[in-house]
Computed example of a mutant assay.
Amino acid sequence: MPSPCDPEYAPAGDVGAALMVIDSRLKAVYDGSTGTDPEQRRLVEQYAASLGPEGGQDLLDGACTLIYMFMRWLRMACEDHGKDVIASVVPDLVASLRMMRRSVPPEAIPTMVGLVVAAGTGLSPSLWRQQYGDWTDAEMNPLEATAFLLAERINRITDDRAFATTMVGRALSSAEQG
């Protein structure tokens, strides 16, 4: 019996916009920026505000789709080396999120871990989260941080600072062509 959290039932959301946010964060970190550029943060906030309620939900679903895609890639990479993706990813993710005290409240960490575990076991993170009600404002930064940390982990594994975003960009391009 298929799960109600099966990815085939999940909305993909605005993956392109979510990818743009994560890509800009990765570039800021790789360029050695300390903190978030206020102008960049203002532009992202202005863009998010312009989306309206439906667009905001699309951006959330897009971020969850990124998490799913990143965890799918990580799962395949771990399996190639005889490792379990959950055991390989979750402890480091929790440690990193705990260090982000200003952006990630401790009470949001279990939800982010749940999203990652759902994705790592082949479930839709957005449908998994939907079971527990609406997203909260306190979960927005942790969601972004989770997607960022997974992308950064992929980039470190591949020794390519653009691998994660390029991988998703290629998948989006091939989906549009097909």
Rank of each mutant, 00 (worst) to 15 (best):
S3N: 14
P4F: 10
P4Q: 09
P4E: 12
C5K: 10
E8M: 14
Y9N: 11
G13P: 04
D14H: 07
D14C: 08
D14W: 07
A17W: 06
A18I: 02
D23I: 07
Y30E: 12
G32E: 10
T34S: 06
D37C: 04
Q40M: 12
R41S: 13
R41V: 11
R41L: 14
V44I: 15
Q46E: 15
A49R: 15
P53I: 01
P53W: 00
E54W: 03
G55I: 06
G56V: 01
G62F: 02
I67A: 00
M69G: 02
M71T: 00
M71F: 00
M71K: 03
R72N: 04
R75L: 05
R75H: 11
M76D: 13
M76N: 12
K83W: 09
A95S: 14
M99P: 00
M100Q: 14
R101E: 13
R102Y: 08
V104I: 12
P106N: 07
E107S: 14
P110S: 03
G114Q: 06
A119F: 05
A119L: 05
S124M: 02
S124T: 02
D134L: 15
W135E: 11
W135A: 13
D137H: 12
L143F: 06
A145T: 02
L150A: 06
R153F: 04
R153K: 13
I154S: 01
I154Y: 00
I154R: 06
I154E: 04
N155T: 07
N155L: 09
T158K: 15
D160C: 12
A162D: 15
T165K: 11
T166R: 15
M167L: 15
V168K: 04
G169L: 09
R170L: 13
L172S: 04
L172E: 09
S173D: 12
S174Q: 07
A175F: 05
A175L: 11
Q177L: 14
Q177F: 09
